[in-house]
């Protein structure tokens, strides 16, 4: 549990892919803090290391050097099994392509994080229903994802990310597959439902239409954070 209001802190974090002549340095000593109650956007050109950065923060990719603390837990000191459990209890994910399992109903998709934690099915589905109600999809519990629009699917994904009450939510391009209006609606849901004083959000995006939803924006280039600025007006 964080006692200083900092959800995530990165100090001198590096990550490289490959070796020898094919080695690519994705992160070159990243220093960053994400605070509780904050929505931080990571922006930058393609290939600058945004996705790698949220992957190492979310403990789904090991970093090479430096230190990452998530809620005061040092990721480097955790085993893979501990990281897996840590993700299940502390993290929520929203993906660009939603990643909803097409053969499960909306409610079942949302219930997955709870089922992973061992919650009974009936209870997990009840909780999923409540969350779906909160994101405005209370009437879609039994339908399959394919029957929903892109914006609705992303709201289901948001509900799934929230259902186990995680303290950190990482989102990868949550609006890039949506039109401007739907994107704003999704961000509104995300900000309204997901953000609280006990939770932090990190959103990787290219979509400058949603910059206005951020508390701070971290700009990356060539594996480094080059600028962290408070919310800027959308262009």
């Amino acid at each position: 549990m964080s006692t200083n209001g900092i959800a995530v802190s990165l100090t001198g974090v590096t990550k490289a892919y490959g070796s020898g002549s094919s080695r690519v340095q994705a992160l070159r000593g990243v220093n960053l803090e994400v605070h509780l109650g904050e929505l931080l956007m990571l922006v930058g050109p393609s290939g600058c290391g945004k996705t790698t950065l949220i992957s190492v923060v979310a403990a789904i990719l090991d970093h090479d050097d430096g230190e990452i603390k998530v809620f005061d837990r040092v990721l480097k000191s955790m085993s893979q099994v501990e990281k897996t459990r840590f993700r299940g209890t502390h993290l929520g994910f929203v993906f660009q392509a939603y990643n909803l399992i097409p053969t499960l109903t909306v409610a079942e998709n949302v219930a997955i994080p709870l089922l992973i934690l061992g919650t009974r099915r009936a209870r997990a589905l009840k909780r999923a229903g409540d969350i779906l109600e909160a994101v405005g999809l209370g009437d879609k519990l039994g339908v399959l994802p394919a029957a929903l629009s892109g914006g609705q699917q992303q709201r289901v994904a948001i509900a799934r990310a929230l259902v186990n009450d995680p303290r950190l939510i990482v989102c990868d391009e949550p609006t890039s597959a949506l039109d401007a209006e739907t994107g704003r609606l999704v961000m509104d849901v995300l900000r309204r439902s997901a953000l609280s004083e006990e939770r932090a959000l990190i959103i990787v995006t290219h979509d400058n239409r949603i910059f206005s939803f951020a508390d701070r924006i971290a700009r990356m280039d060539d594996g480094r954070i080059i600028l962290v600025e408070p919310q800027v007006a959308t262009s």
């Binding site: 897996t84 993700r87 209890t89 994910f93 993906f95 392509a97 990643n99 997955i112 994080p113 992973i116």
Partner: peptide
């Protein structure tokens, strides 16, 4: 694979 990866990211162990 994408969904197995998603389950893994969300905390499903290799054993499960």
């Amino acid at each position: 694979l994408r969904y197995f990866g998603t389950l893994k990211a969300m905390g499903t162990t290799n054993g499960v």
